[in-house]
């Protein structure tokens, strides 16, 4: 018994080191801006950079819109497929996986060809249009995660019976989704939202090729031109992502409990 436990710990330690060592090294390097001793100078430099604030704010805003649009598309779609067209689920699974298969660079070139300023839908003809296109691009990129989060959430509640119970009391479909379905899968939707946010914050390809002032291109730009700030930014990005994941866990505790007690 002791033997097997020992090796389990060794494997665990190796696995943990694989993730932790580069992180610690990055963190250590980010503290070395001032020669000779550790300091948070690189962090101060990052936070005081107006471009950091502007691009971070821009990406946050785009992320929030991507979450909103994603929820409005995915929640009703999953609901109706589960309720009325369950035979379409395999197709739905496949379609939502496509963004993982098609590289973002292909997606964005497709967008530019389809929506350029001389096309029928000239999204790229204006800054606002390009922003909207960027939001839709991010909704697409986050689709596999948002779909799976929402689908898992709906699996945990009996949407058919809850829908019927609400219908017979006179509720319309919009009321049912807004008042019964969405609140019951809120934690799942929020975990999808945080994943979307994590993707949007670090995304480079689409934002760069659409030439929008997002956080991803800013990270790239700093990485190419500075020494210590990129490490500080990497750590900051990690903390943001961890924060998002942590929020998913915290929110999980507030999940509405479905009861199976029959005593």
């Amino acid at each position: 018994m002791k033997q097997s436990k020992f090796w389990a710990w060794v494997i665990f330690g190796l696995g943990a080191a694989y993730f932790i060592v580069p992180l610690v090294a990055t963190f250590e390097f980010s503290l070395k801006m001032r020669r000779g001793h550790y300091s948070f100078d690189s962090y101060a430099s990052v936070f005081s950079d107006p471009a950091f604030q502007a691009t971070f704010g821009y990406s946050t805003l785009v992320g929030l819109f991507a979450i909103l649009v994603g929820v409005l598309i995915v929640v009703p779609a999953v609901y109706f497929v589960r309720l009325r067209l369950p035979h379409l689920r395999p197709l739905m699974e496949f379609v939502t996986l496509l963004p993982l298969i098609i590289p973002a660079i292909v997606l964005v070139y497709g967008y530019i060809r389809l929506y350029n300023s001389s096309s029928l839908l000239p999204f790229t003809g204006s800054a606002l249009g390009t922003d909207i296109l960027l939001v839709f691009g991010y909704v697409t990129l986050a689709l596999p995660y948002m779909y799976r989060a929402v689908d898992t959430g709906m699996r945990t509640i009996d949407i058919k019976t809850l829908t019927e119970a609400a219908q017979i009391m006179g509720a319309s479909t919009a009321t049912i989704i807004a008042r019964i379905i969405l609140p019951n899968i809120l934690v799942a939707v929020l975990s999808g939202a945080f994943l979307t946010f994590a993707i949007v914050i670090g995304e480079f390809t689409i934002a760069s090729l659409l030439n929008r002032p997002a956080f991803g291109p800013y990270l790239q730009n700093v990485g190419a031109n500075r020494a210590y700030e990129p490490s500080a930014l990497a750590i900051i990005s990690f903390i943001i992502t961890w924060g998002a994941m942590g929020m998913i866990n915290v929110l999980g505790r507030f999940a509405p409990r479905t009861s199976a007690r029959t005593d």
Partner: peptide
């Protein structure tokens, strides 16, 4: 939702939220 009927289900179907 237009029938004005009431129904009780085997699995209770109370809204958990």
């Amino acid at each position: 939702n237009q029938r004005k009927l009431g129904m009780v289900f085997q699995a209770y179907a109370l809204f958990p939220n």
